[in-house]
Design a protein around this nucleic acid. Structure first.
Lengths: 340, 340
DNA sequence: ATGAAAGCGCTAACAC
DNA sequence: GTGTTAGCGCTTTCAT
């Protein structure tokens, strides 16, 4: 291939200077319509393609924003990424993706990588391993916006977007109570990410408000996987005091619950099952799975909006950014439909 | 925040020149161990963070590779992205993501955007709308590697990674025949992307080899969605000549098939149902769904390997790159298990 | 409305 | 083993 054409080539071709070319290309202030047109024409003729790297070096803006997530394979994150990219693209931003795979070590490297790439900001959700959050502080030290979504952390003050997780747990439990279930178990996981704790608290609050003291042995902490749901259910069904409904920490856990029940000849809603996340299969399995929708698409869009809002302020003052709290949505389906 | 520290600051601090600093930082050839150590030390002390943008401008390499896919929300692509990022990261590459959302227009913009960002190469899978592929040629014109995966196109000669789709269709059909099904229908979609046509051809070949002439009315072309599967199944069940097994164009279509059958009081494997893609729910629904695994993770990894292989050649000669064809994997599960 | 020139932070010859 | 210097392609004052 021939050497790449630069604004110098355009300038030479038209006997003008690069500054004029640059102005024409960026459609800046006082450019005569005629030169603008001719620049654009020769740019096209010479097959010119702007070099964003060069422009970034001078302007200090890359129009790239870093997305740091546990894994693109987790559908919730895939959906957030999808929405983020789709929305930010329309404002001229591209997405640089980094997956932590739930590793703190990788998360640290990710922040460094994104920062070295000179991203204009970072939108992140924490790994399960993360306890110390000091690596996130570096983003702010560089004066770049940092937005945390879904998996927030007590120690990190940052603009954030999440759903009301306590209410999500409450909502799931309340729904089961409404359907007449009384002996409600909960399969979740244990760690410092707030959301799981908050949901669990919502579960306990709903029970208490219904005058039902939470049964300790009905709270099982395990893995958030199909296998985890399966194992947890076996444990629960081995109790003298068997539950009549089980809340799964997410929809995969719920799948495991259904599987374990099925092997015992039980089909929901005989024992009620509800999950979290509204995975795309949940609506379509038989029986269809009740779940709490976490509004991934909306969350992605809200993150993008928040980023744009922060970036257009100067100087960057993140303090006046109000956190966005989305409302969890109860999707009541067959797996909990005891009453008509 | 203070002004960013550059290699000039390190140089000044140590009374050496930037070239020495640069060499030390990049661990180049003949650097005395002592200066290297002191440079690294002061770099750390001054909180130095390399500016990849600046380095890219001189070196011509960004260590960023562009990923262009229809949508990160389609699980297959999410898995490929996951594998790609995970693998390439270990070689120092970052991922710039662009979604076409199945739009040709967007695909063209995507190629332009990625090229302007000076990516070192592009790994792409085509949108369903794509017929003319000239925008992809621009990548090669810039002398950058272009790898196509899964959704290839007759008109575009490029290194590629895919599964043997004809065989995938054959495999699914053969499996149903093995299970004693004889009247096998196929719900798919129609367009210029090769893979769907090839799978369909595999289906026809399997039937012919079994001495069963394909029934035209058993080939239904619709949307590759749950709704498409549902509608197609209703159409098929309205025929005098009802099928005894249905192949879904993907696992979502299969979900729609099962749903429609369920409403008629039929549960697989009474009528056999098999899908494509091995979505993560397929194993866990009841009855578990037979499917053809497309090896998304492996495909991502193979793309990454191919990219690295191409990039380390000089000059870039993509002609000698043998396409990688992965073998589709039959996952025979309950939805087709007629025989013991 | 356009030109001249400095410089963004780094790399890579080429010297010594 | 280290210094000097010229860019990479673009933006952006400051002139005119």
């Amino acid at each position: 291939m021939a050497k790449k054409t630069t604004i110098y080539d355009i300038a030479k071709e038209l006997n003008i200077t690069v500054s004029t070319v640059s102005r024409a290309l960026n459609n800046i202030s006082t450019i005569s319509e005629s030169t603008r047109a001719s620049v654009l024409a020769t740019a096209k003729k010479l097959n010119y393609r702007p070099n964003k790297i060069a422009s970034s070096l001078t302007s200090g803006k890359t129009y790239i924003i870093g997305i740091l997530v546990p894994s693109a394979q987790i559908q919730f994150f895939a959906s957030v990424i999808h929405a983020l990219e789709k929305y930010l693209k329309s404002f001229g931003y591209s997405i640089l993706l980094y997956q932590t795979n739930e590793s703190l070590e990788s998360e640290k490297n990710g922040i460094a990588t994104l920062l070295e790439a000179q991203v204009d900001g970072i939108i992140a959700s924490m790994s399960l391993e993360t306890q110390d959050v000091s690596h996130f502080e570096k983003v702010k030290e560089e004066g770049k916006p940092l937005i945390i979504f879904d998996r927030t952390h007590d120690d990190l003050q940052s603009p954030n977007v999440k759903i009301d997780d306590e209410y999500a747990g409450y909502l799931a439990t309340q729904h089961l109570l409404d359907q007449g279930y009384r002996n409600i178990a909960y399969l979740t996981t244990r760690h410092s990410i707030k959301i799981f704790r908050e949901r669990f608290e919502g579960y306990q609050r709903a029970l208490r408000e219904a005058g039902i003291p939470p049964t300790p042995e009905h709270a099982v902490f395990g893995e958030l996987t199909v296998e985890g749901g399966y194992a947890g259910t076996q444990q629960l069904m081995g109790l003298k005091n068997q539950p009549d409904a089980i809340i799964g920490g997410d929809d995969y856990v719920a799948l495991g619950i259904i599987k374990a029940l099925h092997e015992k000849g039980i089909t929901p809603p005989e024992i009620g099952v509800i999950g979290f996340a509204n995975q795309n299969f949940s609506e379509h399995i038989i029986p269809s799975l009740s779940t709490i929708d976490q509004q991934a698409i909306k969350m992605g869009k809200e993150c993008a909006k928040m980023f744009l809002k922060i970036i257009e302020q100067s100087p960057l003052a993140e303090n006046n950014i109000t956190p966005v709290v989305l409302e969890p949505l109860l999707l009541a389906r067959a797996s909990t439909r005891r009453k008509q």
